[in-house]
């Protein structure tokens, strides 16, 4: 079978949209929990700002709403059809992508996304309780994870599978860098050794769904160096930047049967450069500013990879990522 460029593009974006929805749902979930213990209005506002930052919606939100109000933010992040990164939009795009590739993907993936879509009208979008929102976020997480489970357990490790996985890892790597950037920004403003630091690094781990994995490797004391090392460089942690980059590289290498042709040369070169940047960077020697510079640079690299990847396989112009 030949893989149509349009189909490959849809598979790639289905995976990205689904991963994005899951990550954004988690960001909102973590914040809703944090909110319960926050006692300071200023801290609360700042936390909400971070949720918007992580879900890549801050500037758009601010252009429409003068102040940060939790109900408005929840609505904006979860439901707003004008917010291209809203959960409903990401899930709807993922379903559309799945619908366009129904003849390729496992039936269970389509049925899961379709079920979510069919249940959408029953979800209350205003006057919601926190409990309802948490249920909604949970459904998204389960839909995403079930889809990944079906993909892992039934799909042939061929071209379609590769495009799905590449989409997922690129989205994940970029989001992990974004989350760390937001947390670093916060830590930078605080004095060293402030009690809040513990709380920040804990949040970082929760936002990347890495807390459980982390405490199996390190003592539950939140050491900034340990956390950063874990999230950026740990090659065994499947949400770390290093892991995602390695796996994108490996998958493309297999896709090309280990051969580098003229059309794929640029992609390989770029990936090698990024791999080098990630492995050679030295956390111990860096200031917070330098680290943030690195994370910014890495996010730009992800956008670059997405573009070169699309060009290499003649995919349709990628949607601009904000």
């Amino acid at each position: 079978m030949h893989m149509l460029s349009r189909v490959a593009d849809s598979l790639y974006w289905m995976a990205r949209n689904l991963e994005r929805a899951e990550n954004n749902a988690r960001a909102l979930h973590v914040q809703l929990i944090n909110m319960l213990e926050a006692n300071d209005a200023e801290v609360l506002d700042r936390d909400w700002e971070e949720v918007l930052e992580i879900t890549a919606s801050l500037a758009d939100y601010q252009s429409q709403y003068p102040e940060l109000k939790s109900e408005e933010i929840i609505h904006y992040v979860a439901f707003d059809s004008g917010n291209i990164n809203s959960l409903v939009n990401c899930m709807t795009y993922a379903r559309e992508n799945a619908r366009a590739t129904r003849d390729i993907i496992p039936e269970g993936v389509w049925e899961g996304l379709n079920r979510f879509y069919l249940d959408l009208p029953a979800v209350r979008r205003s006057d919601f309780t926190i409990h309802e929102i948490q249920n909604f976020l949970h459904t998204i997480t389960m839909t995403s994870m079930t889809s990944q489970g079906v993909i892992e357990s039934t799909m042939t490790r061929g071209v379609s599978y590769s495009f799905i996985k590449i989409g997922k890892w690129l989205e994940r790597a970029e989001k992990t860098a974004r989350i760390l950037n937001v947390i670093c920004e916060k830590a930078r403003k605080e004095k060293q050794d402030s009690i809040n630091h513990h709380y920040y690094w804990l949040a970082a781990l929760r936002l990347v769904n890495g807390y459980d994995a982390y405490i199996k490797e390190y003592p539950p004391k939140m050491n900034a160096m340990h956390v950063l090392h874990f999230i950026i460089e740990e090659e065994k942690f499947p949400r770390s930047i290093r892991y995602c980059v390695d796996h994108v590289m490996e998958t493309i290498y297999k896709l090309e049967k280990g051969e580098i042709h003229h059309y794929s040369e640029r992609l390989f070169q770029l990936l090698e450069t990024i791999q080098q940047e990630v492995t050679s960077f030295d956390l111990e020697e860096m200031s917070m500013e330098e680290l943030m510079g690195f994370l910014d640079h890495f996010q730009n690299r992800c956008i670059q990879v997405s573009r070169v990847f699309s060009e290499t396989y003649y995919l349709i112009e990628p949607v601009e990522i904000k």
């Binding site: 030949h2 893989m3 149509l4 460029s5 349009r6 003649y314």
Partner: peptide, 25 residues
């Protein structure tokens, strides 16, 4: 039937021959 499902934008005609656009050209 195990055949490719294509849209108009997946096809192109060059020198009166019809091609589909795949990731390998």
């Amino acid at each position: 039937m195990g055949i490719e499902l294509v849209e108009g934008r997946d096809l192109v005609v060059r020198n009166d021959i019809v091609y589909m656009k795949t990731i390998r050209g």
